[in-house]
Design a protein around this nucleic acid. Sequence first.
DNA 1: TGAAATCGTACCTTGGTGGTACTGTTTGTA
DNA 2: TACAAACAGTACCACCAAGGTACGATTTCA
Lengths: 153, 153
Amino acid sequence: MIRITRQSDYGIVLLSQMAGRPIEEVLTAKDAAKRSGLPLPMASKILKALAREGLLVSHRGMRGGYSLAVAAAEISVGDVIEALEGPIGITECSYNPGACEQEGSCPVRSNWRRISVAVRNALDKIPLSEMSSPLPPALNSQLSTLNVLEART
Amino acid sequence: MIRITRQSDYGIVLLSQMAGRPIEEVLTAKDAAKRSGLPLPMASKILKALAREGLLVSHRGMRGGYSLAVAAAEISVGDVIEALEGPIGITECSYNPGACEQEGSCPVRSNWRRISVAVRNALDKIPLSEMSSPLPPALNSQLSTLNVLEART
DNA sequence: TGAAATCGTACCTTGGTGGTACTGTTTGTA
DNA sequence: TACAAACAGTACCACCAAGGTACGATTTCA
């Protein structure tokens, strides 16, 4: 369906909420959930995963919470998706060699790889800081550079 | 996971097999399955769906089979995916308004829509006839035009 | 010492996907 | 006219990943 998981979707919303604030600001899972309109357990699960992958820093104990590990402009949409659901690939064989028996004789495999890499590159060029703005200034030029010529593996 | 279904994948392989041959050539489901290395029931199911969506023409009875409805160059990868799994959208809300309660207040929705449309446009510009060639000549330039500026709904 | 918060893990449910089977219908040919 | 080849339609099942929830352990600060 060419669709990301809901967790990735939520993750991007959660991070976008934090993107507009000072990098050192610590936000509790409860607050983040409330602001994003998500149930607490769900938000908590996602924040935890993002911390494990190094996109967030967790602060335990009282007055703890989560803060951005790096500036929002340094985190891309592709980073978030990859952190929450692993490598990006339009088809199974795009990133998991050996998964398909027809691999050797498949006529379309190499092109799927290139398309996947192109999409991945495009998502990598969209910073989180742009996702929350209604009319992102640079998004257009970012995406317009999508080109499979760069999609060499 | 930003992945197409296996059915779409198979569908593109099946159609690519037929793409290199004369448009009026009729191929039985059995032959198509054998050439693509797919189990017959699976191939049959997919060919049937493609015929229902107008990408193939079915010929019933003895010496029947399937043939391309239009030239392979006229069919895009996006067409096949949309025929087999419905509208393309990176997120649920990209094509299904009302599915998400947060829709009104969601800060990232409009950008997902634009990204989805851009991807869709890109896939629409890749003709089937290119997918089976190992070094597609025009694929690069096709994909490089991916630009959300065109992604007005 | 207790409260607030994350951490880790385990669990359940559901829906979509992949895959199979069977029966009906059409059409050409012997 | 009957048979065989091929598609059409539908129904069914199994599996797995995803969505979502719960709970006890651990850390830290006041």
